[in-house]
């Protein structure tokens, strides 16, 4: 990227501090805390044979509690994944392609989350 590198201090200073970086860090931690019980629930429910065939899946997700928990899990998981993948892209990609990758990651996670939530609702509502 084009950034002034005339003196060591200007190289270290770069473009200055961007600000508002703690929000990303905090959101990652909050979604992590939310994911702890939700993932344990998912693992336990699936291991308990909650979705061995279509009938079991339908019964499992028809219960309102399970529907809500699954939707919360999808929101938290895709939010946490989007933030984490963005961090990975910032770490390893140093060219301008970084912006394209981050945009792709955000859009893909939004799409995945939306698809999962709609699918859960459809399974819960339709018979």
């Amino acid at each position: 990227m084009t950034r002034p590198r005339i003196t060591p201090y200007s190289a270290a200073h770069g473009l200055g501090a961007a600000g508002h970086a703690a929000r990303h860090w905090w959101a990652q931690r909050v979604s992590a805390i939310a994911l702890v019980p939700l993932v344990l629930w998912l693992v336990w429910a699936l291991a308990n044979g909650g979705a061995t065939d279509y009938a079991a899946l339908s019964d499992w997700l028809k219960s309102p509690i399970n529907t809500i928990l699954m939707i919360l899990l999808l929101i938290a998981a895709f939010h946490h994944a989007a933030l984490g993948l963005q961090t990975i892209a910032e770490d390893y990609i140093h060219s301008r392609a970084r912006f394209a990758v981050i945009a792709l990651v955000q859009l893909a996670c939004a799409a995945g989350g939306a698809a999962g939530i709609v699918a859960t609702l459809l399974i819960a509502i339709t018979s």
Partner: peptide
């Protein structure tokens, strides 16, 4: 997570 979403869509 993406696989889970795909699996639910299949459902």
């Amino acid at each position: 997570a993406f696989g889970l979403a795909a699996w639910l869509v299949a459902g």
